[in-house]
């Protein structure tokens, strides 16, 4: 009994160009908001987007792990992006979504990250955009308010910058899992 699924529906413009070019997929990004800020993730990593809900909290884990959900029989951990970036958790609204990400094993340094599914909580999903490589700037040295290694670049969209995220870094298993193990005794002692 999974929550109703929102199919990845690219905007008509993006859709047409994707059909026309076929291989331009890696240039397509899902944009979403966290608080005031806009972020983007390459759509290849995204499995689906579901409504927020039916979340089971897991005790004794770091606060950025919101809990787990049942995704058609698979138990998928859900990470709160805002908390992962060191901000207060966003309020749950009607637009709050869980984006299901499949971290790829493209990064050989992250062992065992093959095909791990994880959900991320975002305040609202906006659209799928095409950002040509020419419009992507390297990440700035500082000033982004989030860890620099989480950012893969800055995309220019309608004259504004969106932060393009490196999900494999953010959800890197070694980091997320080690944190879970470390926080256990800390919490127990408190």
């Amino acid at each position: 009994m999974s929550s109703p699924t929102t199919q990845l529906a690219p905007t008509p413009a993006a859709d047409q160009s994707a059909v026309a070019a076929g291989l331009t997929e890696q240039q397509q990004f899902l944009t979403f908001s966290l608080g005031e800020e806009m972020f983007a993730i390459g759509i290849l990593a995204i499995r689906e987007i579901i409504e927020y809900g039916n979340l089971t909290e897991v005790p004794m884990v770091p606060p950025f792990i919101r809990g787990v959900i049942n995704l058609r029989g698979a138990v998928v951990p859900v990470v709160d992006m805002a908390v992962r970036f060191g901000r207060p958790a966003g309020e749950i609204t009607k637009r709050t979504c869980i984006v299901i990400i499949e971290t790829s094993d493209l990064d050989p340094s992250v062992a065992g990250s093959h095909g791990q599914q994880m959900g991320i909580v975002v305040d609202a999903v906006s659209e799928v955009l095409e950002i040509p490589p020419a419009d992507i700037e390297p990440p700035p040295e500082f000033g982004a308010r989030i860890r620099i290694d989480f950012i893969s670049g800055m995309g220019k969209v309608n004259g504004k910058f969106v932060v393009m995220l490196d999900v494999n870094r953010i959800l890197a298993l070694d980091e997320v899992a080690v944190l879970a193990a470390m926080s256990a005794p800390e919490r127990g002692a408190s």
Binding site: S2, T56, V61, P77, Q116, L173, A180, G188
Partner: peptide, 26 residues
């Protein structure tokens, strides 16, 4: 359902299961 890589360090919980209601239980 196994804990999976993320929750492997968790003490006191050995796995997950999914209830008839679709809820995940520990």
């Amino acid at each position: 359902r196994p804990l999976g890589a993320v929750f492997n360090g968790l003490q006191g919980v050995s796995g997950f299961t999914i209830l008839g209601s679709g809820q995940v239980a520990l």
